[in-house]
């Protein structure tokens, strides 16, 4: 089992302050209007711990909404390629909720698979994720339904779990986490290793959404063609909010943006909910209407991805539910689909 230490509550701020002075860039949750977002820290006072979760998942720090993957200049009839300058700096991202960290573990599988995407993986290896367990889930949260927990460690390098007055239980999960702990060991007491079970159970007890979705959806032709998709997708307006606030959605487009002298080839976030996503240049579209597009979203997360990678592509953060303009609810949809499938489940 992993080594664990304790971080006294009063030491947390000191540690963060020293991290801020270090050569690592410290990124932590801060207030922005009515939201809390991850931002580079200017002073430790800007950091807030008062959030259920951040407005956006942490994904954009590794896989930005839009980034150049290539630059080029025209030279006569030729072309000169330039590597886009990707600033690489060691970073610590503090305060990542277990659901969002688990999202990174999912993205790792995709971007690390053969044909490694170093735009993503280099940022990942240069960044140490300090997770922060969740004690008060929101009404829209459902991480336990998808096999995670408010104190799950997947994707974190270090995980802090608040243990009341005793401070934070520190779990070291990776070599990156070990490195950080080694560098700042004096902040962490090597006291007795306490179990976080009670914290986990208390947080889970506060979770109002607890269905059994973790087994995923078993696709059959009947289910694929079932009218339920048209039924649930009828109100879907086909925007990209659900995909863009999702910690695990990773579909992208590659486009050129150029002028008379050269240009950039950009990788932009994209969404299977957009009608153009699969439309061929000929006009043929394998997913001509919103029902087939929404079906793809749900099945990719609950059936296709698990078949390929052995895990659900949903971490239950609930952002797509709360941000949807028309209250499309993937938790409710997955339940409804499982009901159609005929698998026993509990609510």
């Amino acid at each position: 089992m992993m080594a664990c230490r304790m971080l006294r509550p009063e030491k947390l701020e000191e540690w963060l302050a020293e991290l801020l002075r270090s050569e690592r860039r410290l990124i932590a949750p801060q207030r922005q209007g009515e939201d809390v977002v991850f931002q580079p820290v200017q002073t430790v006072d800007d950091i807030t711990l008062d959030y259920i979760n951040t407005r956006w998942p942490v994904k954009a720090w590794f896989f930005p909404p839009s980034e150049p993957v290539l630059r080029y200049r025209y030279q006569g009839s030729g072309v000169e390629l330039e590597q886009p300058n990707m600033a690489l700096e060691p970073r610590v991202i503090f305060g990542v909720r277990p659901c969002d960290a688990a999202g990174l573990a999912i993205l790792d599988q995709v971007f690390n698979s053969d044909g490694e995407d170093e735009f993503y993986t280099r940022r990942r290896t240069m960044t140490t994720i300090v997770g922060l367990s969740c004690t008060h889930p929101a009404a829209s949260c459902f991480c336990t339904s998808v096999g995670l927990s408010p104190t799950a460690s997947a994707g974190s390098d270090l995980l802090l779990t608040p243990m009341g007055d005793a401070g934070y239980l520190v779990e070291t999960l990776t070599a990156r986490g070990e490195q950080l702990l080694w560098e700042y060991g004096h902040y962490f007491a090597a006291g007795e290793c306490r179990s976080k079970e009670a914290v986990t159970e208390a947080a889970e007890a506060r979770m109002s959404r607890q269905a059994a979705l973790a087994q995923g959806i078993e696709l059959s032709e009947r289910l694929f063609e079932h009218p339920i998709w048209a039924e649930v997708a009828r109100k879907c307006l086909g925007c990209g909010v659900c995909a863009y606030v999702c910690p695990t959605c990773h579909c992208f487009d590659i486009v050129d943006d150029s002028d008379a002298w050269g240009g950039v080839r950009c990788r932009n976030w994209d969404s299977c909910g957009f009608s153009l996503f699969t439309r061929h240049a000929s006009g043929h579209n394998p997913r001509p209407q919103q029902d087939s597009r929404y079906r793809q979203r749900v099945l990719h997360k609950f059936s296709y991805f698990p078949q390929r990678w052995g895990r659900l592509m949903c971490v239950g953060c609930g952002r797509c539910v709360t941000n949807c303009p028309v209250n499309m609810d993937i938790y409710a949809t997955a339940q409804a689909v499982l009901q159609v499938q005929g698998v026993k489940h509990e609510t």
């Binding site: 696709l219 990773h250 579909c251 990719h300 296709y304």
Partner: peptide, 16 residues
């Protein structure tokens, strides 16, 4: 329709 050609961009996903 494909974009990355490398199993990442998700566009050509059909089932698994």
């Amino acid at each position: 329709k494909m974009k990355c050609g490398l199993g990442k961009c998700g566009r050509c996903n059909v089932g698994p």
